Amino acid sequence: MQRWLAVRELVPWHEIPDNGADGPVVPLRDGAAEDIRAFDSAIDPARAEGLLSALELLRVDAARGARLDFALLSSWQQHVLGTLEPPQFRNSPAFAKGSRERYGIGPDTRDRFDTCLAESASDAGRLLGLTARAARAYLDVCFFHPFDDGNARSAFLTLVFVLAREGIALDGVSLLRRITFEAEDTQDPLILVRYINVHLAETRRRTADSTGSASR
């Protein structure tokens, strides 16, 4: 987590063009939902059902312009994990990737996390393009590792939410799941931004092609 916070300030986020600058796009199909049905259902139907419920909730939250913070993530994570109550922020160090990565905890960890997530908004200081903000928020969840379980799923939902809050959905997300990143690598965040841009460009192209065909 400390390595990520240091790297986060060094990443040349502005280096990658923002494919979100062209405004909202409504895809022909719901790429996030379709990926959940194909990938997560094969692992466990209940896992897919929980993710789909969380996806529906986050889109309602995005439509009302909700502020992104831990409490919001936790309301989705209750569905992801199937818990009776929204899960709390972890209270001890966490480990991942075969214990190769350790995520510390301190009295201000949650507050620092909320501060980072707040920077995903379009009116945040040091304004970045939408796809960079979506990638950064995804990695904030990965490397703060706020939950005892399901952090990769939470990170994916966070990315979808940041895009949805500005009227953008993707018709494919294959490059945004089944991937891992290293906290100390300043190029990994740029790779993620490029992946988002690829999916967004393809979504716009297919949507435009369909509209053009329908008008002929």
Rank of each mutant, 00 (worst) to 15 (best):
T180D: 10
T131R: 07
A94I: 02
D140Q: 09
G125T: 13
R194E: 05
Y138F: 08
S99M: 15
L159Q: 11
T109F: 00
L163G: 07
P87H: 02
A63Q: 13
G167T: 15
F181L: 10
V141A: 05
F144H: 09
N197Q: 04
A62D: 10
L57T: 14
S120D: 06
W76Y: 09
C116N: 06
S174H: 12
R153T: 13
R90F: 00
D61M: 07
D185Q: 04
G167F: 07
N91S: 12
G65Y: 07
T186E: 11
F156A: 13
Y195F: 04
H145E: 11
A118R: 06
R102A: 03
L130M: 09
T115F: 00
S154I: 08
N151S: 03
L192S: 00
H79S: 15
V80I: 14
L68C: 07
T83N: 02
F147N: 01
E101F: 09
A164C: 09
R126T: 09
D61Y: 07
Q78D: 14
A169N: 14
K97L: 15
D149I: 01
L130A: 06
R177N: 11
A71I: 08
L58V: 11
G125I: 10
L190E: 03
L55D: 13
E101M: 12
I105M: 01
L81F: 03
C142G: 08
A124M: 06
V80Y: 10
S75N: 13
R100Q: 15
R153Y: 02
K97M: 13
I105K: 00
P189I: 03
V141M: 04
V60D: 15
R165W: 04
V60Q: 15
F144D: 02
I168E: 12
A121P: 08
C116T: 05
N91T: 13
S99Y: 15
A164Q: 10
L159D: 08
L58A: 06
D149P: 01
A152H: 13
T158Q: 11
L190Q: 04
G104C: 04
G82W: 04
N197A: 01
S92T: 04
G82L: 01
V162R: 10
D185K: 03
T131F: 02
G98W: 04
D111L: 04
F70Y: 05
R133F: 01
R133D: 08
Q187W: 07
L72K: 04
L192R: 02
L176W: 05
V60N: 12
Q88K: 02
A135T: 11
R177I: 14
P86H: 00
V160S: 11
V141S: 08
L157N: 12
E182C: 02
L57C: 06
G65H: 08
N91E: 12
H145R: 10
R64V: 15
I191F: 04
Q78R: 14
A169S: 15
N151I: 06
C142D: 13
I196S: 03
P86K: 00
T83C: 01
R133G: 07
R194V: 02
T158Y: 02
H145K: 05
H79E: 15
C116R: 10
H79Q: 15
A94T: 08
S154Q: 06
W76L: 05
F156R: 15
P189Q: 05
S74G: 08
R194Y: 00
L73P: 08
V160D: 14
A121V: 07
I196V: 09
P86A: 01
S75M: 08
R59H: 05
A164G: 05
R177Q: 14
D108E: 14
E182P: 00
L192W: 00
P146N: 10
L139Y: 02
